[in-house]
Nucleic acid binder design. Sequence first.
RNA 1: GGUCAUAUAGCUCAGAGGUAGAGCACUACGUUGACAUCGUAGGGGUCACAGGUUCGAUCCCUGUUGUGACCACCA
Length: 762
Amino acid sequence: MTSSEIISSRYDPKSFEKLIYENSLKTFAPKKEGDKYFSILMPPPNVTGILHLGHALTYTLQDILVRYHRQRNIDTFWQPGLDHAGIATQLVVEKWLNSKGIKASALSYEEFIAKVWEWKANSASNIVNQQKALGCSAPWEYSRFTMDEGFAKSVTDAFVQLYKDGLIYKAKRLVNWDTKLETAISDLEIKNVEETGSLWYINYKIADTDDFITVATTRPETMFGDVALAVNKDDIRYQKYIGKCAVIPYTNKQIPIITDEHADMDKGSGCVKITPAHDFDDFEVGKRHNLEIVTILDKHGHLLNDEIVPEFLRGLYLKKARKILLEKLENDRLLIKTETIKHFVPYGDKSGTVIEPMITEQWFLDAPKLAVKAIEVVENGKVKFYPDKWKNTYFDWMKNIQPWCISRQIKWGHRIPAWYTLSGDIIVERTEVEAVHVAEKLGFKATDLQRETDVLDTWFSSGLWPFVTMSPEFLKRYFPTSTLITGFDIIFFWIARMMMLTLYFKNEIPFRDIYIHALVRDDKGQKMSKSKGNVINPMDLMNEFGTDALRYTLTYLSVPGRDIKFGRDNVKISRNFITKIWNAGRFLQTQGVRFNTNLEELNITEKIHHWIFAKFTEFKKGIENDIKEYRFDYIAHRMQVFLRDQFCDFFIEAMKIINDANTKNIAGFIYKEFLKLSNPVIPFVTEHLLGLLSGSNNLEPVEVYSVSINSDDVKDVDYFVNWLHEVRSIKHSEGVNSAKYINAKSNTNNLSKDLRQLFILT
RNA sequence: GGUCAUAUAGCUCAGAGGUAGAGCACUACGUUGACAUCGUAGGGGUCACAGGUUCGAUCCCUGUUGUGACCACCA
């Protein structure tokens, strides 16, 4: 027997947790190509800052799967990495520089990018340290970053190929414009917030008459971009004006009064102004009627300093212009009514500023084309969502997908590999050398070329994650990946894009199963956010209760399809359960139990031996099934039922009475197996105990073995356990404390002789 | 406006077409070979409401209400 160290009297995770995680990285069997494998992509966290409870949840669940498969000798790979997170990172870096008294705008492009890399180096190591502290058993040496050299090359290649295949194009379109960040953003990066606003009724004069037509609008300041007024063709109020012209106040500009289905008789005054350059609906109306497009805003959100705009408003910021204009309209009795309404206003996700529709030239990816296959593979079940309902969300978006605006006017990101000649030709090539080569054929010199300054949307590069992170050998071995675990909030941003791009470039699905986990909310069900001040830092919980307790809690609470209401009490309860595991091991150790026995050395003779092996087998099989169905909550629950209710409360108690070496060694064997099976959920304490009990830090694989179990014996013990509870209950209710009493009051005839010696348990 | 969830014990949540379950909290007892970060026993639920299917519904169906999330062209 290996000499064992003594388990200390008190469970104190701080004394060992930090030292353990490296042990977990051990892999077991040598791998051969073509073996069964399990692979999983770690959703790369942004390099913006510290990890929150949502990260703790997602990484815990992934780590459970990884450890589970690895300890069963399945060739397992977990791809770690980090995301450069374009806009988000640029913002935190600007803030960081600002705090050091440096203005980002004063830096050159190169200087600024250098600062971002400086930030990244620091942030990345923080994040990885936190992941390690959480117990993530990823092979960190394979970590990738979406801006590292190789990745950047793959992004460029992907862009060029999509361009040459006609799936990426440049177009002048109405896009969502963030006036604070001064970049286009995709419609996903917008949050529509319901607000109380005003609907202003403004009179436009009918040309060559003294009549007025009343227009209702929430955006009066855009009136100088109006190119028409629209009414419904059935609206009797306005029949007489159809075909005539109205005059935009404070200008001489005449615009036609047209009919369009877009004009709703029941909304506002029934007459709506058409401003194609600053409204998505109006843009469509403009297209239908072939109207001109008049832009009146600059990229900062100021009215143009231009004769389109009346002099008193030129160059003013939107909000200010609106205020002055309304005052003037009121004075001039052109504002005839103000109505308070509730309406949705688009805000930029990152900047928090109101988003303006603006006409700009942007790069687009033809997502509708790529979506076809991505829809198909979910419809035919090649890719499955867990819980299943999320496929509805996926389809809903995919079937109505719009061209994806992939260009951003920011600094931090993959620069679009496009060059412009003096005459405006667009050259898209992998490198500048190639671009120059093409330019020369067109008759331009290298110095005539200008490189595109736009960068790609972060999600364009993340979308390539499934197939550009792995080496060619690993791609053969681990692709397509087995499971993706992530939150529902990035189904569109990330999952959809990975599906489309992977199917396009590899003609293969990126992953087979998609497990969508819950959102972690506070104990009142509120979303955690810095502004609400209800954010719980996982590191604090880990310090107070131990990492295993946190992991166990998150696992226990992972009920599919329901958000997690997370309170610190839950972690405390988990800590208590882990203490129970600890104490059981400590007790067994004091009893001289052997933990390193082989199954063959044990004699499974007594009824309770059969019983405990039956319960253990149930436990083990249960876990295997739970993993297949992604029922992490069941696994945690099973651990309690087996360890506390079955192993401690009955088997150990019975062992105390039976008191023979064989039974003790069975307890040792089962306990050790329990630790191994629980390792995926609570790796630190199980590895620590296994180390102490068996004198080695190696995590042994979970073996497949079978024990022949006599089911009648199991039934007998089950009967006895029920009987025990009844007797105890009777004794309690009658306030008696005597063993003789049991013989008198209870029918023990059904119990076998060997169980009768356990009467004392009553 | 549309869609998808969800409603079970005081709280957080499992659950199955046929005596309603766990943990926490609560009550009583207990320091009898580990564990008070514990053990034993106990109280506590018209399973949101109204219909329907069924021998039987808390579970399936329809509707209502509450809650949450997502999507939407938000004049």
